[in-house]
Design a protein around this nucleic acid. Structure first.
Length: 228
DNA sequence: CCAGACGTTGTT
DNA sequence: GTCTGG
DNA sequence: CCAGACGTTGTT
DNA sequence: GTCTGG
């Protein structure tokens, strides 16, 4: 699963890395991004090209009566995303990249849950596979939202949690976004766990538990819990 | 036909 | 909107 | 994902 | 326990 992540690269760096063109939205460095918040995604523009845009984390299906949290879906299962009513249309027509520098998972243990931070060994920002949606309310209000696709944990994440977000390799971004017109099965084939040897992980402070905390120290390793 | 759902996770 | 269940 | 709330009335 | 808010 994935219910919290970090995005510390600035808009200019992300636009360059993910080949987004046009006006850049403004957003601060985030060390503890949480559902319901406005966060950047990368998606296709009506013309050929990609753009960086802000959207609310928690996909609101277009048929939903409102931005009700019961229909605000923060994760979609890779195994069923192409068929589920809430995601099928977005899977075909509204894929997106969700830029991140790392993500958190919680390990259930005696005495409470211990959070861990996961990132790439390369230290580079990366993209989760996501879907976005455009919701228009009865009063004409509009919300753009997104969800992050999840799959089985790899051997890096498995000791902490059984599920993890899908992280795409740079060379697969175009296919996920549908820019090469690949058939559905080839887009689905991208929704696999990233190889474990490309990732690193360490325990972090429980300060990350509260979404109100959002500071650089949340990403620092908690020395007490590192191995001998 | 209409009504109701439409999602994920873990349960130490 | 679209599918499943009754 | 976790934290925190979880209620009613009448009031300008 | 269960729901909402961030």
């Amino acid at each position: 699963m994935c219910g919290r992540y970090a995005l510390t690269s600035p808009p200019e760096a992300l636009a360059k890395l993910f080949a987004a063109i046009g006006a850049l939205p403004n957003f601060p460095r985030r060390y503890n991004a949480a559902p319901s918040q406005a966060l950047p995604i990368v998606r296709r523009t009506p013309r050929p090209g990609r753009e960086l845009a802000l959207a609310r984390w928690g996909l609101i299906p277009s048929w939903s009566k409102g931005p009700d949290s019961r229909f605000s879906m923060i994760n979609a299962r890779a195994e069923t995303v192409a068929e589920k009513p809430a995601y099928r249309g977005a899977f075909r027509h509204r894929p997106c990249l969700v830029p991140a520098n790392g993500f958190f998972e919680w390990q259930a243990a005696k005495g409470g849950k211990q959070p861990y931070y996961f990132s790439l060994k390369s230290g580079e920002p990366f993209a989760f596979a996501g879907l976005w949606e455009h919701w228009i309310g009865a009063g004409g209000d509009e919300i753009e939202s997104f969800t992050i696709i999840v799959t089985d944990a790899n051997d890096c994440v498995a000791p902490v949690h059984q599920r993890m977000p899908v992280i795409l390799h740079m060379q697969d971004h175009a296919r996920w976004l549908g820019e090469d017109d690949a058939p559905t099965r080839e887009r689905l084939a991208l929704l696999r766990p990233l190889p474990a040897d490309e990732m690193q992980c360490w325990p972090v402070s429980k300060k990350v538990n509260s979404p109100a905390n959002d500071s650089p120290d949340l990403l620092e390793a908690e020395a007490d819990l590192l191995g001998p």
